[in-house]
């Protein structure tokens, strides 16, 4: 009975979706898989860390893109040698991966510890400040960012063909989704949700509230760092402008479009964002009404504005509300 209940509904639909995504490279065009879907998975993975912090920790973070960028810059610095910009350490690619992850996680420890006594709006503002200061650090200290960014970054041989990068993104996304969901029921996850709901009570029960928040931030930073590595392999380059305030807000907007309180919404939001970004110019008549590629941010902003006015839970929130309403209508119909 229990097993049967578990096998129906949501998990089954998600398993089907994953299966579909695994088969996708043989169904869709290379452009759709390697450009649209890979980008969706990378951005979705990064946005999922925002959702994780927000939903389970009550902390809406704008520093996740900074973590994403730190990992990318550190990989670029460590893996390249000679001729290119940056530190040119010339390490083995996998050593560079380890280095990037360690630095990102350490940065998350420091930033998380400082921010751990604040929540809600204060946390949002503080992490926005982190993001912008981080941007200035990379923009001004050119030793670690190379004047104008680090270019011609190669991915490890294992991920050579673009489709393998797609599968890597899919694997990490599934792992992150399952991992975050599983964390909910662990002792740490339960304590974290307790900290979100009532920090004073948790503190008086003997839980170390700042420590729980810091650990959650470190985990989110680690995962965002993985997404940052995928991004730098996908792009082949990274520059400070890619982690400035605009993209920082865009990552939050992706989480908001999908619904800041649902994990799967992160990937949904990323998909919508990438679709709009990629195909807006192909729509007929957009030029006529003054919306060109250059006005892309206006379109995204208006979409977010509309979503926030309609439902603060984003697209998944809207989707969840629809069936309930139709069911209610049916019930009303039978009663009448």
């Amino acid at each position: 009975m229990n097993l049967r209940a578990r096998l129906t509904g949501e998990p089954l639909a998600l398993a089907g979706l994953v299966l579909f995504l695994i088969l996708l490279p043989s169904l869709a065009t290379a452009f759709f898989v390697n450009f649209v879907m890979t980008q969706t998975l990378i951005l979705g993975l990064a946005a999922a860390t925002i959702v994780f912090l927000s939903r389970y920790g009550g902390m809406t973070s704008l520093a996740q893109l900074l973590m994403f960028g730190i990992a990318g810059f550190m990989f670029g610095n460590a893996a390249l040698d000679g001729g290119a910009r940056g530190l040119n350490l010339g390490w083995h690619p996998w050593a560079a991966v380890g280095f990037a992850i360690v630095v990102t996680t350490l940065a998350a420890v420091v930033l998380g510890a400082i921010a751990s006594r604040t929540t809600g709006i204060y946390f949002l503002m503080l992490t926005l400040v982190y993001g912008v200061i981080g941007y200035f650090v990379f923009a001004q200290i050119v030793e670690i960012s190379g004047p104008g960014g680090i270019t011609s970054i190669q991915r490890p041989d294992l991920l050579g063909p673009p489709v393998r990068l797609y599968y890597a993104g899919l694997l990490l996304s599934v792992l992150a989704y399952v991992g975050f969901r599983a964390l909910r029921r662990t002792a740490f996850g339960l304590a974290l949700q307790g900290v979100r709901d009532d920090p004073v009570r948790m503190a008086s029960l003997g839980f170390n509230v700042p420590l729980h928040r810091t650990l959650a931030f470190v985990l989110a930073g680690f995962v965002a760092g993985l997404a940052g590595l995928l991004n730098v392999w996908w792009n082949g380059q990274i520059d400070p402008a890619s982690i400035s305030i605009g993209p920082t807000l865009i990552l939050l907007i992706i989480a908001v479009i999908g619904g800041i309180s649902s994990l799967e919404g992160a990937w949904l939001g990323a998909f919508v964002y990438v679709l709009v970004f990629t195909y807006l110019r192909d729509l007929p008549l957009v030029d006529r009404i003054g919306i060109t590629e250059a006005r892309f941010n206006t379109v995204i902003g208006v979409i977010v504005l509309a979503i926030m006015v309609l439902s603060p839970e984003g697209l998944t929130g809207i989707a969840r509300r629809l069936p309930v309403r139709t069911i209610r209508k049916e019930l009303g119909g039978t009663r009448a």
Partner: peptide
């Protein structure tokens, strides 16, 4: 609804900057 208001003003920022 603090968070909703913050996100609304963020979206307005993006639109205004572009315009």
């Amino acid at each position: 609804q603090e968070m909703r208001q913050t996100l609304l003003t963020l979206a307005i920022t993006v639109v205004l900057a572009d315009q």
